[in-house]
Design a protein around this nucleic acid. Structure first.
Length: 436
DNA sequence: TCTGGGGTCCTAGGACCC
DNA sequence: TCTGGGGTCCTAGGACCC
């Protein structure tokens, strides 16, 4: 048995902890660059704001409907997330942190009434962190996900599901008849693993609900939709196929990409941007104690704008695996020079580190051609460590490699505060804390 | 004017080999 | 009408997740 604990409208809820005046108000939190809405309060959803909707399309709702728009503050959300996860972990012996606002907890061997325990844990999270959550419980992770959807929907849209399932829904406590009714009331697109594409293909085949999907033959699902969806089908039938993953595996690739506030036409600001992205990707790389063997850099024009289109990427192999910012930056900028073409309005760029390996594998692997750099290389890990520590302590961009050129151009991709609803532009650190 | 930023896994098809 | 038959490795692209 698994539980899925999920924060409601997570980023918005985090903001509301520090600004209780925003309760019962339509609120959205915007992505980097204030580009689009990535978290919406129930009131904002009721206004018709879609997930990922561009801000310029909903900006008028600030005047018309009192919508409040906030720039994302990921440092705050990460901190709130940790507190929520710590409390949630108490529900069972093992926890998998699945995303910033969701965790699975294994309930194997847990004694007593699971529903009561889950309700109590939910209350505790609310009390200790101020964050509202919903809990779904089922025999597999996919069923726990579905149960969580039911718990959330029963609370937000009364009438769709029985009201006693709101906030906490335990499928294992329901009769087969009650489960069938729930599955018949659930859209097939709500299944974890069924996205837009597969959802519409299923509907073409008259598979509209979770119940319809369960009636298919496993072999038909496999044949038409592949092994991944067949696994989902089995999970919905109560057969566990997806294990809990504690100790999250280290990343197989690391990316740092940003859209720019305005189009960029010249090479110089792109070099600075790409240098900065490579540095940040390097920090993530060192945090998980890995080295990269290849650096990918890409630039592209906006797919939404008129004008000539251009999108290109290149992979630069490193002479040997490295986690050294200097190596990463010079590979990224060299790659950029290869793919850059004048005459375009670039809207986005990024750096990805590929072919990662554990960094201890390469200790003492200096080859002859590099011996003149040996003294320097020995110093490198300490230098990189100092770099990371300083940047962590004093903020991004405190210290960087000379070639990256700091500060000036970071305006290109930094958040644009002027877009926010004006009375809400104060930093959260300056606000009184409503709940400790 | 203004459209996020990460990730994972699977599959099809091409290149190459014997 | 027929065009050998497999393997393996790599890459691009599609699909999904939050």
């Amino acid at each position: 048995m698994y539980a899925l604990i999920d924060g409601n409208n997570f980023y918005v809820s985090c903001e509301r902890v520090f600004r209780p005046a925003l309760n019962h108000t339509p609120v959205v939190v915007l992505s980097n660059n204030d580009g689009c809405a990535i978290s919406r309060s129930n009131e904002a959803k009721a206004l018709g704001v879609a997930m990922g909707e561009p801000f310029f399309k909903i900006a008028d709702l600030q005047q018309k409907a009192g919508l409040v728009a906030l720039s994302a503050n990921f440092a705050l959300y990460g901190d709130m997330s940790q507190r929520m996860m710590t409390v949630a972990a108490g529900l069972g012996p093992e926890q998998e942190i699945y995303s910033i606002d969701e965790s699975f907890v294994s309930l194997a061997g847990v004694q007593g009434d699971l529903l009561v325990r889950a309700r109590r844990m939910r209350e505790r999270i609310l009390q200790w962190t101020g964050l509202p959550t919903c809990v779904g419980i089922g025999e597999t992770k996919t069923l726990a996900k579905l149960a969580n959807h039911i718990a959330k929907t029963a609370e937000r849209k009364p009438g769709v599901y029985p009201s006693h399932l709101a906030q906490v829904c335990h499928l294992g406590y329901l009769s087969p008849q009650a489960r069938q009714a729930l599955y018949q009331a659930s859209d097939v697109g709500e299944i974890w693993g069924v996205g837009r594409r597969i959802g519409s293909r299923l509907k073409e085949a008259k598979v509209n609900t979770v119940w319809d999907f369960l009636q298919l033959e496993a072999s038909i699902v496999r044949q038409n939709f592949g092994v991944v969806l067949e696994r989902t089908w089995r999970e919905l039938h109560g057969v566990p196929c997806i294990a809990l993953e504690h100790a999250p595996a280290s990343k197989q690739e690391i990316a740092c990409t940003r859209s720019f506030g305005q189009g960029v036409t010249t090479l110089e600001p792109l070099i600075q941007a790409v240098g900065e992205f490579a540095s940040r990707a390097g920090e993530k790389l060192r945090r998980q104690h890995s080295c990269a063997s290849q650096v990918l850099v890409f630039i592209r024009t906006s797919p939404f704008r008129e004008g000539p289109r251009y999108s290109q990427s290149v992979v630069i192999p490193l002479r040997r695996p490295s986690a050294n910012t200097a190596h990463l930056v010079s590979a990224a900028t060299a790659g950029l020079q290869l793919i850059y073409k004048p005459g375009y309005q670039f809207a986005k760029a990024g750096v990805m580190l590929l072919d990662l390996s554990a960094d201890d594998v390469h200790q003492g692997e200096l080859d002859l051609e590099e011996t003149q750099d040996a003294a320097q290389s020995v110093q490198t890990p300490r230098l990189m460590h100092a770099l990371d520590t300083l940047n962590q302590r004093y903020g991004r961009g405190t210290l960087g490699m000379a070639s990256t050129g700091l500060t000036e151009q970071s305006r290109l991709w930094s958040m644009r505060q002027e877009r926010l609803t004006p009375q809400y532009t104060t930093s959260w650190q300056d606000l009184p804390i409503a709940r400790a």
